[in-house]
């Protein structure tokens, strides 16, 4: 059995060959992915954004995810090349220019986790944790979730996930799933300011969602992969320009009812999923927080975290 090593420990040629053969095995918390794809954009995206993520070049076990970033048609392989993520089942993906292969890779991974991985209750949420427990932030796109996650990473929290909170059903703990934090438009500059330019990937412009850049996971986030944490704080952040910061406590039932619609597979998991969700909220406090600036939100989160003993 070959051991995992960081992406950065392999040469471009080695990575390109493994990607071409579809034998690149990527460790992503409780999941592993078999990645396939050709061309420099995908390879250099992985080398930059996944720099410290653990991979191996030859497939040594079966994987949860098999993702092929490929041309949508023979024509688009050569003329104005495009790519789509192909996870082995029909997905609603728009073809992207080949230069955006990294974006297609990220979209593909998210789709598989959302639609296929039912070992965990999957919520669309950001999660950070320290030794005492985890903060789960559930927000719609544009709610400022990723910026908050990136800001909390600067305050001694480890990145668990920017996209999906993975709730393990038997023990109701959250699993660490440290993928790069996806930043859109204005949040890119904000995060670059406090994280440092070296930790944010080059900007991909003119994507369907505007400008996108990634805040890379750090080695300390990744070595903790495979770890789990108890949820202490559940937040529903809402960004509203110019509004005065406020926090409103939520009862357990209300928090559960607000989390359910953000899950991609709750409806599949039935009683087991409900029990895990209830158990998670038993040990946590939940708040809706409204804010107008990142500074405001951070002050509130710090106070609330202190209150629940994080």
């Amino acid at each position: 059995m070959v051991n995992f090593a960081p992406v950065s420990s392999y040469s471009s040629q080695e990575l390109a060959a493994a990607l071409k053969a579809g034998s690149l095995e990527v460790a992503l918390g409780p999941f592993t992915a078999r990645a396939k794809g050709e061309g420099k954009p995908l390879r250099s995206f992985l080398q930059d954004t996944y720099r410290d993520v653990m991979v191996r070049l030859s497939l040594s076990d079966v994987t949860d995810i098999a993702l092929d970033v490929r041309a949508p048609s023979l024509l688009r392989k050569y003329i104005r090349p495009q790519v789509i993520p192909d996870p082995g089942f029909q997905v609603p993906a728009v073809p992207l220019p080949k230069s955006m292969s990294g974006l297609a890779f990220e979209m593909g991974l998210n789709l598989v986790v959302a639609l296929k991985c039912c070992r965990f209750v999957t919520f669309h949420a950001g999660v950070v944790a320290n030794d005492k427990g985890a903060i789960l932030m559930s927000a719609e796109s544009g709610g400022g979730k990723s910026t908050l996650v990136a800001a909390l990473m600067e305050e001694g929290y480890r990145l668990y996930s920017d996209e999906f909170a993975l709730l393990n059903m038997p023990d109701a703990r959250l699993a660490s799933y440290p993928r790069p934090v996806s930043l859109k438009n204005e949040s890119i500059e904000i995060v670059r300011d406090f994280a440092g330019g070296d930790w944010v990937s080059p900007v991909i412009s003119d994507t369907p969602k505007g400008k996108i850049a990634y805040r890379r996971a750090r080695p300390e986030d990744i070595t903790e992969a495979g770890e789990t944490a108890v949820t202490k704080l559940v937040l529903f952040p809402r960004f509203e320009a110019g509004v005065r910061a406020s926090a409103r406590g939520l009862r357990r039932a209300e928090a559960i009812m607000r989390l359910i619609p953000s899950s991609t597979n709750y409806h599949l998991l039935g009683e087991q999923g409900f029990n895990a969700l209830r158990k998670m909220l038993d040990g946590a406090e939940a708040f809706e927080i409204t804010y107008g600036t990142t500074d405001d939100s951070m002050k509130m989160v710090r106070d609330l975290a202190a209150k629940v003993g994080l």
Binding site: T32, D61, V62, T63, D64, K116, C117, C118, R119, H267, L268, L269, G270
Partner: peptide
């Protein structure tokens, strides 16, 4: 890992 992958199939079938 093989068992993990099977679990996905079992959970869907249960649904």
């Amino acid at each position: 890992k093989t068992r993990d992958v099977f679990d996905n199939g079992l959970l869907r079938a249960r649904f």
